[in-house]
Design a protein around this nucleic acid. Sequence first.
DNA 1: AAATATACATAGCATATCTACATTTTACTA
DNA 2: TAGTAAAATGTAGATATGCTATGTATATTT
Lengths: 119, 119
Amino acid sequence: MISSEAIRGYIDLIILCVLEGGESYGYEIGKSIREITGGEYIIKETTLYSAFTRMERGGLIESYPGSVTHGKPRTYYRMTKKGRGFRQEKLEEWEFTKKIISKFIAKLTESGEKSDGSH
Amino acid sequence: MISSEAIRGYIDLIILCVLEGGESYGYEIGKSIREITGGEYIIKETTLYSAFTRMERGGLIESYPGSVTHGKPRTYYRMTKKGRGFRQEKLEEWEFTKKIISKFIAKLTESGEKSDGSH
DNA sequence: AAATATACATAGCATATCTACATTTTACTA
DNA sequence: TAGTAAAATGTAGATATGCTATGTATATTT
């Protein structure tokens, strides 16, 4: 299972990507994340809810109480315009990070091909 | 300039990739990182040195005093066997993260193509 | 002698995610 | 109908990482 540290910093992007598919609520968003990744990434509920708090405080999402219920009342979330802008920013940041890290990995195979690396 | 949050969790991998090219010291590692990325990522010195502390404590690298000096005495670092294993792990983690994030981005273009997304 | 480049280091802060725990409402079932 | 599971949300406190700010020491250049 993937370490949370690996995906850190991209939780907000993930949530915003899910919300692009339509307004939703915590429990369902969690299920969506699991489904989209084929069960490879299962987000912790607390991670999700603390992300909501942070994101709403930052104006990236808006919450409203859901009417349909099947348990404890739902809190729905929708993306704001600011959220969409942020999503775009994060997307670019992600592409940039990919570029940077790949340079180091490239250098790795470069020096790794020469020797076994034993010392 | 890249946000520090974006690259978070991969500083250790970056340092270990650099050390794969040979033993080195803080100031030089910092310069290497700048050069490898074509100046696109300039690591903070404190980030670097606190990473060294953490990594040495975790047994990923070993330090020793340098003899050649050109200013304040250098502290050299070399990767340990454990460090190499960790580097491999992190590498796999990185590939995994790439796969996960790309799934959400794919879903994004999928739903983004249908409409402008305005509400 | 002063300025600059080389080089390392610590203290304390901000943030994000985690572990652990707690709660409410509805549906099912024995 | 009592009990349990599932649906759903939430808080408190711990931890780790990278940050800002600051400080130190030596060598070279002006």
